Amino acid sequence: MNKESISEIVNDNTSKGGRVFDIFIQTLIVLSLIIYALLTEPNISEEWRNVLHISEWVIVVIFTIEYLLRIFLSPKPLKYIFSFLGIIDLLAILPFYLAIGDLSTIRVLRIFRIFRAFKLARYNNAISRLKLAFKIAKEEIMLFLLVSAVLLYLSAACIHHFEYEAQPEQFSSLFSSLWWSVGTLTTVGYGDVFPITVGGKIFTFFILIIGVGIVAVPAALLAEGLAQARKIMAVENGKHDDRAHHKDVT
């Protein structure tokens, strides 16, 4: 099997071999996450714990082979290594190897195994559309985040002005007031800190109305971006199918 054939299996999920490879890796990702969850169970028997550890070894070895193959097959290996997906692929296996021989670090590094969940991003078209949607709406989202940061600051300053004398412990500074601002503007409202003055209550009323927009605006931007991303990917897939059909004919 030559390099081109291997690349078709590893990188081209439109081919039969590529689809089988993708399903195989996705299955291993899910299994590794289940194993991670089971290993946190305190009542699991030592025999089953050993089976799970061996299974994880096998999965990590396969992930390592996949990672090395992607470096080998990439036309620009360094670009892949430092790309988002390349870093995720590395983080999915690196903690396991770092923990070998040093039992004191196992518990610390074990949490990083959850990065394997992000490997699913490579094999999911919906996640690809989501990434493209963020790229399309990037400028609008950045502007919205800037406006939100300003609103958070202003609301914290105002509520501190209204509530400081009545509740000096809860609203001792602008920074402590930011906790209230975040909870109120995002409409979460934990209820641990709340205004008791008339001015603070009236101000909170208007902040709650603004908070609805804080939640709705990014959702609308993302929805529009997803709609555009779906159209773009549909056009690209159509072109890919045409090229594949032409290749089969020739």
Rank of each mutant, 00 (worst) to 15 (best):
T184K: 02
L174T: 14
Q228T: 06
A117P: 03
A156I: 06
N237L: 06
I6V: 02
N50L: 08
A220F: 12
S128Y: 14
V20R: 15
F115S: 12
F82M: 11
D22W: 15
W48P: 01
L120I: 05
Y164Q: 12
K79T: 11
F115P: 11
H240N: 12
F205L: 08
N50Y: 09
A121W: 14
G199Q: 03
L94T: 07
S55E: 05
R110G: 13
Y80W: 05
I100L: 15
H246P: 11
L33W: 06
F72E: 11
I111L: 11
S104F: 11
L146Q: 02
L154N: 08
E56H: 09
A229L: 01
Y97M: 08
T187L: 07
D22H: 15
L69C: 02
E46T: 15
L221K: 05
I93E: 04
F96C: 08
V188E: 05
L146D: 02
L222Y: 04
L151F: 04
F203W: 00
R107Y: 13
P195T: 03
E165P: 10
F203H: 02
R129H: 00
N13F: 14
I210W: 06
R19Q: 15
Y123G: 07
L68H: 04
H53F: 14
F82K: 12
A121H: 13
T105H: 12
I23Q: 15
K138A: 09
N124F: 01
S104Q: 13
N124D: 05
Y164D: 10
Y153R: 13
I29K: 02
G101E: 10
I106Q: 13
M233Y: 10
T197P: 01
L103V: 13
V150P: 09
C158E: 10
D12P: 05
V150R: 08
A244S: 11
V60S: 09
G213V: 08
V147I: 15
L143H: 10
A92E: 01
T186Q: 06
H245M: 14
N13H: 14
A166R: 01
G86C: 04
F203D: 01
K119G: 11
S74R: 02
A149H: 08
N11D: 06
I6Q: 01
A133W: 07
I196R: 01
Y67W: 09
V182K: 04
N13Q: 14
G225C: 04
A219P: 09
L120T: 00
I159C: 00
T27R: 06
Y97L: 07
E236P: 02
V58D: 00
Y36N: 09
H161A: 09
A121Q: 12
I141T: 03
I44W: 06
G189S: 00
A99R: 10
F24V: 10
K135V: 02
R49T: 05
Q167N: 05
F84W: 06
Y67E: 07
Y123S: 05
E4N: 09
A223S: 00
E4S: 08
H53T: 13
T40P: 14
F63A: 04
W179E: 14
L94S: 09
T14W: 13
R243Q: 10
E4Y: 06
F82Q: 10
L31C: 02
